[in-house]
Design a protein around this nucleic acid. Structure first.
Length: 234
DNA sequence: AACACAGCCAACCGCCATGTC
DNA sequence: CGACATGGCGGTTGGCTGTGT
C-alpha cells in the first residue's frame, strides 16, 4: 500500500483561491522552487506538495505564455507528437511558455480533431483509409475519453519505457528505417526567462536546427519516399 | 427562459524514475 | 543493495462555460 503524498485530511482540494496563489508565489519568489513536500507548510498552505507544484508549473510560473496557440505552434506540436507520441513534457519543452498540461489539453481538444478532419489518425499520424469520418462527433464513450472509435483508428498502446522514445505511440515506430537519430535531450521546460523574440515558435526549425532535434522530414534519407505519415511535414 | 449537450481546462490520481540513506 | 522519499509524468476526472434546441 502506497503512502499518500500528504495527509489528505488536512489539505484543501479543488480550485485555488487568490490568497493561496499569492502565498505560493510569494514563497517561491523568496525561496525558489523545490522541496515541494515541505513547501505547503512552510508557505502556510493547506495543500498537498504535489498540488502546489502543479499549480506553480501550470499556472503561476511567470514565464507562461498562455492564450491561444499560434498556427506554427500547432504544426510543431503535431510534428513532435508524431515523433514522440504522448510525451507531453518533451513536447512542451520545445514550446516556450507552454506547459505539458496545456499542450496535452490542447491536443485532446483541438489538434486531435483537426487531424481527424484531415483524415489523419492522430494516434499514428497516418492517413485513415477506413470508414469516412463522422463529422465532429464526440466519441461515444464517456466524457473525458477523447479516444476515437475503434473504426477510425488503431490504438497504439503507449509504452512506459522512456528509453524507447520511438516506440511510444510514435507514428514512426514501424517505419522501415525506424526513427532517425534524434537528440532527445529535450528535457525540459525550464522556468527560464521567456525568450523575448517575437517569433519564439519554430525554434526547432529556425533557431537550432542542427543541434537539437532533427527535422523530421529533412532527416529522411534522400530518395526515401515520404510515407503518408509525413504528409504533415511537407 | 430553461434545459441539454458538448467543449474546454484546471486539478487530481496513480505510477514510474531517480536520489538518498 | 534494498527501502524509502521525493519529483515528475501521463491519463483521467469534474466543474464551468458556451451553444443549440
Amino acid at each position: 500500500m502506497r503512502k499518500p503524498c500528504c495527509d489528505k485530511q488536512d489539505t484543501n482540494k479543488g480550485a485555488w483561491s487568490k490568497q493561496e496563489d499569492q502565498k505560493l508565489v510569494d514563497y517561491i519568489r523568496k525561496h525558489g522552487e523545490g522541496s515541494w513536500r515541505t513547501l505547503p507548510q512552510a508557505a502556510g498552505l493547506l495543500r498537498c506538495g504535489k498540488s502546489c507544484r502543479l499549480r506553480w508549473i501550470n499556472y503561476l510560473r511567470p514565464d507562461l505564455k498562455r492564450g491561444n496557440f499560434a498556427e506554427d505552434e500547432d504544426d510543431l506540436i503535431i510534428k513532435l507528437h508524431a515523433l514522440l507520441g504522448n510525451r507531453w513534457s518533451l513536447i512542451a519543452g520545445r514550446l516556450p511558455g507552454r506547459t505539458d498540461n496545456e499542450v496535452k489539453n490542447y491536443w485532446n481538444s483541438h489538434l486531435r480533431r483537426k487531424l481527424l478532419k484531415l483524415g489523419i489518425d492522430p494516434n499514428n499520424h497516418r492517413m485513415v483509409h477506413i470508414s469516412p469520418l463522422r463529422p465532429t462527433t464526440k466519441p461515444s464513450t464517456t466524457k473525458g475519453n477523447p479516444n476515437p472509435s475503434p473504426h477510425e483508428v488503431t490504438q497504439v498502446k503507449p509504452l512506459h519505457n522512456k528509453d524507447q522514445v520511438s516506440d511510444t505511440g510514435s507514428c514512426l515506430e514501424d517505419e522501415p528505417r525506424g526513427v532517425p537519430d534524434l537528440n532527445l535531450d529535450l528535457t525540459i521546460n525550464n522556468p527560464q526567462p521567456v525568450i523575448p523574440e517575437p517569433h519564439q515558435n519554430n525554434l526547432l526549425e529556425k533557431q537550432n536546427p542542427s543541434t537539437t532535434m532533427s527535422d523530421p522530414a529533412g532527416d529522411l534519407e534522400p530518395g526515401t519516399p515520404p510515407s503518408s505519415t509525413l504528409l504533415l511535414f511537407q
